[in-house]
């Protein structure tokens, strides 16, 4: 089996799958599964025009803000907890509980506190998505090779340098793994919180389309959410590859 054959298989198979879906949906004449061409058309009509500003942009904004808070607070708190083992031990049961609590269960709590505005959504996303980053930072920082820390002490490197150039960097593979999990949680919680309590956003409008039985529109929204997830993951992988360039040869 040559590489070229495998590559051909890799390209042809998904293409066949898409073709099959296109043919099936155009023949089926099903109410639930409108023709693929129609979905693509409605995608272009809806999401590339006014909804871009009215729904897509607010969603992206919430995501970006919440994710940034997750990263900064998660890495910061993780660093502190990892460097103070007693505090970590004391906090661990509470952290385990909060981490095991499914994020969407907190939405009513968020609504109670902040109503259905952006604050609620950002609050819910952060509360649900911060844990993988925090826990992975703790593990990553704890796992820093003592040999590196000895080296730093021998050469009398200042503390802040040890933090930024050695500890943070050493822990970065773990931190990035946590950030990747957090990214998909962020998208999921963004969608769910918009579905439950919102007046705009992609999640809101997809559910709205279903409620008004605008099936093509609904499918185009699902397609959009899929694309957001896919592209966010792709962008993250590219970022991770750059950040961890030094791990390739090891």
């Amino acid at each position: 089996m040559t590489r070229r054959t495998l590559l051909a298989i890799e390209i042809v198979c998904p293409a066949l799958a898409v073709l099959a879906i296109a043919i099936f949906t155009s023949r089926a004449d099903s109410y639930y599964f409108p023709p693929l061409s129609g979905v693509v058309q409605s995608f272009a009509d809806i999401w590339l025009s006014e909804r871009l500003v009215s729904d897509l942009l607010p969603s992206m904004q919430r995501m970006a803000i919440a994710y940034a808070i997750c990263v900064v607070a998660g890495v910061g708190a993780g660093m502190v907890l990892a460097r103070t083992p007693r505090l970590m031990t004391a906090c661990e049961p509470i952290l385990e509980f909060l981490r095991a609590l499914p994020g969407p269960a907190l939405i009513p709590f968020g609504i109670l506190l902040f109503g259905i505005g952006d604050t609620m959504k950002i609050f819910i996303i952060v509360l649900g998505a911060i844990w993988p980053i925090l826990m992975n930072t703790v593990d990553g920082v704890r796992g820093v090779d003592p040999a590196l820390l000895h080296m730093a002490r021998v050469y009398r490197l200042p503390r802040r340098v040890v933090f930024s150039k050695i500890i943070l960097r050493s822990a970065s593979p773990r931190i990035l793994a946590g950030m990747r999990t957090a990214l998909s949680l962020t998208i999921i919680l963004m969608v769910v919180s918009e579905m439950v309590g919102s007046t705009n956003g992609v999640g809101f409008s997809v559910l709205q389309a279903q409620r008004t039985f605008a099936v093509s529109e609904m499918w185009s929204g699902i397609l959009l959410l899929g694309l957001i997830g896919f592209l966010a993951n792709l962008a993250f992988l590219a970022f991770e590859k750059r950040a961890l360039f030094w791990m390739r040869q090891r």
């Binding site: 298989i9 890799e10 999921i188 929204g221």
Partner: peptide, 28 residues
């Protein structure tokens, strides 16, 4: 390797789709 190649792109596309995006479909 053959099924691994055949499904790679499909899986890589399907997996990052947020599961909750399918809520409207399921309700429908």
């Amino acid at each position: 390797p053959i099924p691994a190649s055949a499904f790679r792109a499909i899986i890589e596309f399907l997996r990052p789709i947020p599961s909750v995006a399918l809520i409207p479909l399921a309700v429908l």
